[in-house]
Design a protein around this nucleic acid. Structure first.
Lengths: 332, 332
DNA sequence: GTGAAAGCGCTAACAT
DNA sequence: ATGTTAGCGCTTTCAC
């Protein structure tokens, strides 16, 4: 900037004014400064400015998700990015792989870079460690998980209601013996989905004690094996509710191995690409990651704009998408 | 930092030493400083440090892709992130949606934030505008596209060879009339894939003039319609080579509509989730986005470490995955 | 409409 | 082993 000022033959403050579109600079001066900046390939240093600037905003956001490689996170990330770009804000993204140490590490890395806000899918047992930062005024929005040991805005899918809808759907098609295949029992979303499922089963007068439930399935392979074990046991289910993407796909593989994909009903939580092109096409309860991301970004920016409203939990509705696999009736 | 120094009863430089793990501080002092930092919830300001630091490294990378919501970009991003984390580097990601203005805007936004390097899938006609930045020493790595108007390290899939492999595969199964469905004809990857296809067809002695070729298919819908038009015309193809993910899926939809999915061979460029669970399962030439990302990150860091080797183009091999659709023989 | 001086939070280069 | 001073590139404040 000093060099630009020298070349344009003006004071450094005038260059600053031109760069930041501040008033009180004559058109002629603006032109001279722009020209000098161009010739020197000058790029303003945002960080240097922020050091002195009163609002202290870096126009940077931090986003923490399970993995940027998974479709749910991708859609969410994209929505956050779109909202951010409108505000001239860049987005740091990081994958946590369910590793609490990584969460701590990346939060610190982002805070050292002075992000204006944080949108996070937490994997730590408690997020109390964020309290000091929150008190300092950094907006925190929790997505897809309820925070523990701290308050904050929260945006989640309607997990319990979505699971209940899926279950109701299967019940309506005449199923009584419905198995639950779930992922890690200790994460918020899984707890809620199981709760929705069980409550709906109970409402239908089904003794919850006898329901086949297999949890902690973390990938396709374990889900596939779980499904096979279901049919190896006595009194196999006539329908399956799978609580997550990979579990659904593993279940499909298992059903196909047994040749039961056309006789066993299946509803999965979370939609996936090409679900409509499988045979049978898979009925799912779809989440809306783009909506979750948009809402989370909206909350962060509202807080940055001074919104003082009490923390709130936003529940994004899910949607049952009927495709075939969920409409298979029991044999008898 | 001043406050920490005051509370610990030491000079500010000593705090700096402790924070940065520099030597020549007694254990007792370290403990006192750490304690004070803890009590004040002190978070060092990386940007302030960088202002004075001689290496001028922000430990930040910028990544530009088509869209962070697409699986190819997600896998690539993840690989870049993994490499970056090992180096204490955070990653900015941004989606371009084929919009040159967005590329320019985001590059500028990243440069103002002083990223140490840039990994980019370019969408502008020429990337000459990056030359000044390159001369300033910022490593630039181009992925999935050849840059124009500038030199730099490049990491791409083996598009031509992959397309040739797919084509050869279809030829080996007896096809002579193979149609090409391609996406935007003006992007590097599409050009290369078409070239590989045509060269292989020519090698097989097939007059390239008569080959059914439809390009500029940008989504499933247009690909589906293109496929239908192929079979509405005289002398329909016995096999299809589709040059991209969405095009492949659109083609599958079209074939199914016509009931020809079991009688028309299909090989797609780029793998996709559940391709193995369709009927028929889809034979593809798979790319390796994770490898591309890892290689790109490696190049950036090598340059940052002072590697002065001439710019190089890294070609990541593709892999034919045989699943069924590509092994259907022509009727006669 | 313009510029000079001070200072943001830190590290470099020297002291001691 | 520790502290002091200057200055990174900018914005603020205030003077002209």
């Amino acid at each position: 900037m000093r060099h630009v000022a020298a070349l344009a033959g003006v004071g450094i403050k005038t260059v600053s004014r031109v760069i930041n579109d501040e008033p009180n600079v004559s058109d002629a001066t603006i032109a001279r400064v722009m020209d000098a900046a161009q010739r020197l390939n000058y790029q303003p240093n945002l960080h240097a400015g922020n050091l002195r600037r009163t609002d202290k905003k870096t126009r940077t956001l931090g986003l923490l998700v399970g993995s940027v490689a998974n479709p749910f996170a991708g859609a969410l990330h994209r929505a956050v990015e779109d909202a951010a770009r409108e505000r001239g804000t860049a987005v740091f993204a990081s994958s946590l792989d369910d590793d609490p140490l990584r969460e701590r590490g990346m939060v610190e890395a982002f805070l050292r870079r002075r992000v204006d806000g944080l949108i996070l899918t937490t994997v730590t047992k408690s997020q109390g460690y964020l309290i000091p930062e929150q008190e300092r005024g950094t907006p925190l929005v929790f997505v897809d998980r309820q925070p523990v040991g701290i308050e904050g805005d929260v945006v989640v899918s309607d997990n319990a209601e979505g699971a209940a809808t899926a279950t109701r759907h299967l019940l309506e098609y005449g199923h009584r013996r419905i198995a639950y295949l779930g992922d890690r029992h200790d994460i918020h979303t899984a707890v809620e989905r199981k709760r929705g499922f069980l409550e709906q089963m109970a409402s239908a007068g089904i003794a919850t004690g006898g329901i086949p439930i297999i949890e902690d399935l973390h990938d396709e392979q374990s889900a596939r094996l779980a499904l096979l074990s279901l049919f190896a046991a006595e009194n196999p289910p006539t329908a399956i509710f799978s609580s997550q993407n990979l579990v659904t796909i593993g279940a499909i593989r298992g059903l196909r191995e047994l040749g039961r994909q056309h006789t066993t009903a299946l509803v999965g939580f979370d939609d996936f690409v090409l679900a409509d092109m499988l045979d049978p096409a898979i009925t799912v309860v779809a989440q809306n990651p783009a909506r979750i991301g948009a809402l989370a970004a909206e909350r962060v920016f509202a807080r940055l704009d001074g919104d003082q409203a009490p923390d709130q939990t936003y529940i994004v509705p899910t949607q049952l998408i009927v495709r075939g696999s969920g409409e298979i009736r029991p044999r008898d």
